[in-house]
């Protein structure tokens, strides 16, 4: 059984059809990429998947469970984390606190425990901090744990956002254009980081415009165009596909 099965997902905004019958499977442990021209519905797809929108038609089956249209915070609890295209770290709090907020749904403390069970609360808090520090150590951010998130360089903020998403041990991580605004060195770091995540057992779903990056990272690529699934295959297949070249570069015949 695949980790995630999207079945005929459709999304309409009024009369605009943003997604039209997109079906795909994500297998456990793979790195899957999604590419497509601007406005092809890539971000809409993961917004639907992560619960920010509810799809108009179709179903998401995650771990054998129908998660279509659940609220975002519930879906996070079920093990799908994401990052955003336009970087959304919490700017005015420390790096460590950012990661601790990512751990929110795994900290089992009720309001009652906060006031009346502070031995338990303190123990759980301590474990949470250790866990957050472990994740920061993987991303080489441990030494900057007390810096405000907004004072980190851009590439590090991107890494921090991914740390915040993976600290809750998700089964599936959705990355929405993680390379946007990065320089080639930072991109290589990110590619390495994503492979580490894969080794840790996290399935990664990447949307990216940067072809060099996605071709080197992804094991399988899905191409979206005008809200529909256009092509699917290994990076080599996609690179040599005439139709995909056509949607990116235009038809030879049109020239």
């Amino acid at each position: 059984m695949s980790l995630l099965a999207a079945k005929t997902i459709g999304k309409k905004f009024g009369g605009v059809i943003a997604l039209n019958d997109v079906s795909l499977n994500v297998e456990q442990g793979e790195i899957i990429g999604m590419i497509g021209p601007n406005g092809s519905g890539k971000t809409t797809f993961i917004n639907n998947l992560s619960g920010l929108y509810a799809p108009t038609t179709g179903q998401f089956i995650f771990n054998g469970e129908n998660i279509t249209g659940l609220a975002a915070h519930v879906i996070t609890g079920k093990g799908i984390s994401r990052t955003f295209q336009n970087l959304r770290v919490f700017p005015n709090i420390s790096v460590l606190e950012n990661v601790l907020i990512g751990l929110h749904c795994r900290i089992d403390v009720s309001l009652w425990d906060v006031y009346f069970g502070f031995v338990k609360t303190r123990k759980i808090e301590k474990q949470a901090r250790e866990k957050a520090m472990d994740v920061l150590a993987i991303a080489d951010l441990a030494s900057r744990k007390n810096d405000l998130a907004k004072n980190l360089p851009y590439g590090k903020q991107r890494l921090l956002e991914i740390c915040r998403a993976i600290v809750s041990d998700p089964h599936l991580l959705l990355l929405d254009e993680p390379c946007a605004g990065m320089n080639p060195v930072e991109m290589d770091d990110l590619a390495k980081f994503i492979r580490i995540l894969q080794k840790k057992g996290i399935t990664v779903f990447v949307i990216e415009h940067n072809m060099r990056f996605i071709m080197s990272v992804a094991e399988r690529i899905v191409v979206l165009a005008n809200g529909s699934k256009f092509q699917e295959g290994t990076p080599a297949q996609i690179q040599n596909d005439k139709k995909v070249q056509a949607i990116y570069l235009g038809d030879e015949g049109e020239l």
Partner: peptide, 28 residues
């Protein structure tokens, strides 16, 4: 006690970025 728990952090997350907070699993 409250602000140093996960509740306090959740409140701050809502202030900083409500959408991101909901994706962190916080029922805003």
């Amino acid at each position: 006690l409250l602000v140093n728990s996960k509740f306090g952090r959740a409140f701050i997350a809502i202030r900083e970025d409500e959408l991101a907070a909901s994706v962190m699993g916080i029922n805003t």
